[in-house]
Design a binder for these strands. Structure first.
Lengths: 127, 127
DNA sequence: AGTTCTGTTATACTAATAATAGAGCAGTTA
DNA sequence: TAACTGCTCTATTATTAGTATAACAGAACT
C-alpha cells in the first residue's frame, strides 16, 4: 500500500485517502477481491486517527467501490463490466462540468482539454 | 444574470456562485469587460449574505477570471488567447484526475469518458 | 457639493465539518 | 482462549461556512 497523506493540504485527509485508493484500483495495483488494511492498522501506518480512516472507507463504500464486511474487513469490489450506473454518471457529470468550464475560461480550447484528459487516462491505466 | 443557489446543497454557496459565473462566461453570456453586480445587489438578489458573495468574487479573482477594482466593481477578464498558465494547468489536472480515476473504477471505459467530456464541452459552448 | 453606492475591514455569533482521543461491544479469526 | 475486527458512543479542539451589523473611504452620479 503506497499511500501518502499531506496533513497541511486543504483537501481533507479522508478524501485524500479515498482518492488514492481509487487511483490504486484504476492502476490495477489493487484488484477486485483484495482486502484493504484494517482501519486501525492503516491509521497507525499513516499516523492518522482511526475514525478518519473509517470515514474514508465508508465514503468508498457509499460510492460502490468497496464493501465493508462487519467484524471482518473491507473488500474491493470487482470493476463493473456492464457500464456505469445512471446515478454515478450524473454524479461524475456534476463534478467534472465546473472544471471543464474553468478550463475553457482560463484559455484552453476543447481539443487541448481532450488531449489532457486522454493523457491522464492513459497515465492512469499504466503503472 | 441567471443564477440560482440551492441553499441545502452540500456545495458551499460561494462555490456554487463562482461555478455559475464561470459557466456563464464559458457560454459567452458574460464577456470580457462586462461587470458583475455589486456584492450587495447580488447578495440581496440571491437572498444571501454580502460576505458570501464577496468571498465568491475573491475566489474568481484568485483564479484569474475577474479583476476587482476597489471602490468600483468586479470586471470580467477577457479569455486568454495565448493558452493557459502552467500553474492553472497543474491545478486543473489535480482537480480532474481523481474524478477520471473514479469514472474508470465505476465501470466507464476511456472512450466513454472521452465522449462524455466532448459532450459536456460542446454543451457548454452552445447556447 | 452632497448623496448614494462601492469594495473593504472589523467584530461577533451560530452551525457544521474535520480530526483527534479513548473506551467499550460483539463478532471473526487464528 | 486471545487477538483482531468493524462499530458505536462520548468528548474535545480547530477550522470553515454563513449570517449579521457597523463603519471607513474612495468612486460615481445628481
Amino acid at each position: 500500500m503506497f499511500i501518502q497523506i499531506e496533513p497541511t493540504s486543504d483537501i481533507p485527509i479522508y478524501t485524500q485517502l479515498a482518492n488514492q485508493v481509487i487511483e490504486l484500483i484504476a492502476r490495477g495495483q489493487l484488484q477486485g477481491g483484495d482486502t484493504l488494511p484494517s482501519v486501525r492498522a492503516l491509521a497507525s501506518d499513516l499516523s492518522v486517527n482511526m475514525h478518519t480512516v473509517n470515514k474514508s472507507y465508508h465514503e468508498l463504500e457509499h460510492k460502490g467501490i468497496i464493501r465493508i464486511v462487519p467484524k471482518s474487513g473491507a473488500v474491493i469490489n470487482p470493476i463493473v463490466q456492464d457500464g456505469i450506473t445512471s446515478d454515478n454518471r450524473r454524479r461524475i457529470i456534476e463534478q467534472i462540468k465546473p472544471i471543464l468550464a474553468e478550463s475553457l475560461v482560463l484559455g484552453m480550447d476543447p481539443e487541448e482539454i481532450q488531449k489532457l484528459v486522454s493523457s491522464i487516462l492513459t497515465h492512469l491505466k499504466e503503472e
